[in-house]
Design a protein around this nucleic acid. Structure first.
Lengths: 198, 198
DNA sequence: CCACAAGTGGCAGAGACTGACAGATCAGGC
DNA sequence: GCCTGATCTGTCAGTCTCTGCCACTTGTGG
């Protein structure tokens, strides 16, 4: 998961590494003491950098847990546009999210820990929902293009937001349950809850 | 819309009035200058109280726009439990939200202004979605009770969150469009987007 | 080797929010 | 009318997040 920085160069590699390290340390500290009881200064000290630099890598403290929203959002969008245009929209969305969950390079334990912290702190939940809003802006136009009839914009928004809610619910359940079920399984089940007849 | 304070007494009335006044002034200022360009100090000065008092009425600056989340959430919940138990769940949810929109005492112009500000600032949208999360906690158990089969908890969550997304989308669209369509109409349409077959 | 870009740290400051304390204000009993 | 106690308010001091700004260091490419 490289960042937004220009791809080439050793500098970009170092940057990503530092970024990942800060995130890792922060999540561990949050997990142990709680999000509100850890200051940016403490995170910086634990990593070995100045507080100023932490804020250079992450505009907000919450982002150390959330990560890079735009990156994965664009990933989902790319998956969606690649689906055949005659596929039912819900199937296409489900497949796109599944592809995201199946992306390699995602640390299972770390991801679950981050998700658990995310669910425990209101401020973090809010920031996470903001990320979903950003995703929605990326996905809605694509969905709207596949719909027919009137009010496509409104309907597309409803479908996208509902699917994102399913995605969020599945991940939350996955983080809280003790690995007895895969995230993909939970995702399919939550999607199924909205289509009793189809 | 009285608050959480004990019902009786002139003091509670005064308290609600001050609270409403602060909210009104804040929304006007945000509307004119933008949410981020207005400080709590300015709001306090405009109302004629100290900044400390503003924070006494509203724990966070965002809450001056959002209002009291729990109050209306419980209202929706009460509506939902009052629906006949054999009614399809989506119909029951739709009716409950409609009842909320039809509640008297809601200032149309002020509500629309607040909604528009809410849509223009990411931090506010996120905080508003947090409110919906609180509502979801109230509604999910009731919905779960009406479902049958396995995984009722997860399915109930998906349904509730999806319906809340529809509610939010309808209100946002209502605030941005220029009154050409009623909020109830938009709500029904967004609900319809999720049930192409039913 | 040298110029230049990029990264870092320290500093100062704004703004949101909190706790503690003292004074003002109002309800209800006498 | 007046006192007592509860409630409300303002002031002050303080923490924490986040942002410019500037000087310094460290790599990168010519």
């Amino acid at each position: 998961m490289s960042e937004v920085t220009k791809p080439g160069g050793t500098r970009a590699i170092a940057r990503d590494a530092v970024r990942a390290r800060i995130s890792e340390v922060a999540v561990d500290l949050f997990d142990e003491h709680g999000f509100d009881n850890v200051t940016v200064e403490q995170i910086a000290a634990a990593v070995g950098v100045s507080p100023r630099s932490v804020h250079r890598y992450f505009p907000a403290k919450e982002d150390t847990v959330i990560g890079d929203p735009a990156g994965w959002g664009e990933h989902v969008r790319d998956q969606l546009v690649a689906r055949p245009s005659d596929e039912p929209i819900w199937d296409a969305l489900l497949a796109s999210y599944e592809a995201l969950l199946a992306t390699p390079g995602r640390n299972e334990a770390q991801g679950r820990k981050a998700m658990r912290i995310l669910g425990s702190t209101p401020a973090l939940r809010a920031r996470n929902l903001e990320k979903h809003l950003l995703w929605a802006h990326l996905l809605t136009p694509i969905v709207a293009e596949r719909l027919e009839g009137d009010h496509r914009g409104l309907r597309a928004e409803a479908i996208v937001q509902a699917s994102l809610a399913c995605f969020d619910i599945a991940l939350t359940a996955w983080a809280e349950a003790d690995a007895v079920e895969s995230s993909v399984e939970l995702l399919r089940r939550s999607f199924g809850a909205l289509q009793p007849t189809a």
